[in-house]
């Protein structure tokens, strides 16, 4: 199956620029990148579905493949829902900390420090000489 080079170039540029933006720390930039990658991937569906043709309506000859179109259609709408949610997150982050940067996870950093200090996890129960007893605390 022959591939239209123009569409491939569009995919390369959209996905490349989108992922570059997604690797940033500013949440609004990440969201812009996310939507852009979404556009690129939808074009990918188009390329995979074959050559262009008539709209997929019953009775038209030489129609394009409708299945990838249905999938891409749901993807477009989901992208809208998710990016709106991401914007709400960005706004909330702005409200709380005055910027929309995605920071390093504090918990992960704690674990990293524990690993460097050769410590056990905080939930680890160091065995003691204590003998269990059914009466518990008051015994």
């Amino acid at each position: 199956m022959t591939v239209d080079l123009a569409l491939v170039i569009a995919i390369v540029v959209l996905v490349g620029c989108g992922t570059t933006l997604m690797l940033e720390r500013s949440l609004s930039r990440i969201l812009v990148g996310f939507v852009m990658v979404g556009n690129g991937v939808n074009l990918l569906f188009l390329v995979a579905s074959g050559p262009s043709g008539a709209p997929p309506i019953v009775g038209r000859g030489g129609i394009t493949d409708p299945l990838p179109q249905a999938m891409a259609l749901t993807a477009i709408v989901i992208t809208l829902g998710v990016s709106a949610f991401g914007l709400a997150l960005a706004y909330r982050s702005w409200q709380l900390s005055g910027n929309d940067d995605v920071k390093d996870d504090v918990e992960d950093d704690l674990i990293r420090r524990r690993a460097e200090a050769d410590e056990t996890s905080s939930s680890f129960d160091e065995p003691e000489t204590d003998v269990p007893d059914e009466e518990g605390a008051d015994a």
Binding site: V3, L7, V8, I9, I11, V12, V13, L14, V15, G16, C17, G18, T19, T20, L21, M22, L23, G40, V41, L44, V47, A48
Partner: peptide, 13 residues
Amino acid sequence: IGATTGLAVGAYA
């Protein structure tokens, strides 16, 4: 990373 990802996806297409 972004550029290679884009090129790779294009190649997959």
